[in-house]
Amino acid sequence: MSAATQTAFAAGLFAATPPPAGLTAWNSRAPERRYGVYRNNVSASLTGALSSRFPVAERIVGLEFFRAMAQAFVLLHPPRSPLLLAYGDDFPDFVAAFEPARDIAYLPDVMRLEVARGRAYHAADAAPLDPQALAAVDPARLGDLVFTPHPALSIFSSPHPAVSIWAMNAGERPLTPLECWDGEDALVVRPQMIVEVTPLPPGGAIFHRLLAVGETLGLAAEAAMAAEERFDLSTNLAVLLRSGAFTAIREENPDEHRHHA
């Protein structure tokens, strides 16, 4: 009997129907407003969880619009785990297909950046690579270096200026009219306790992505150069070392190297 009671209680929480049968109160056998407290708690707590993961999106579209969007998402994609830290990873995809938000083309990408920042916040801790680490490497061997990515690292790319829009609405940069609507790339990192979004120079996204999957520095630089003629290796290396995106370096097949030498 009680399993059925719980099923009916749960089903009614997301429906605009009268409360399920079997509920009561000291003064009424149809405790509509009392059941409504639970309905309201569920809705407010889940949309609230999304608000706290997507504060910049909420700021861009306004509280009311965000809430309506979040409620629509919660109905179709309620959380499947009590781990709300990860709830809403697919909210940006939902927003991309959400008709009323269609005019704000950059919004899903700004939200994807917020997802990446949330993941970085909770990622495992690791000490970033010493910025001087490359100085000790034999210049002839630089091309063979392989980098270990920091657990918090992700590389963000958008066909919209989503990084600038995020930064202005997050209070990281003054709000000014955007002059350039080109796409933008950024590293999302957390070298210590603060999540940082580091804009990438041209070709930087390809370069860092290849390094993050374990390709050598030589191969990553070549591929970035082939894809983007403005790619500049020393600028990108400076970003790499300053950002804390990687934790260690090693030489690919050092034995083989010695053998040839």
Partner: peptide, 8 residues
């Protein structure tokens, strides 16, 4: 309930 977390 039924793997849906209701957060209340």
């Amino acid at each position: 309930h039924d793997s849906v977390f209701l957060n209340d």
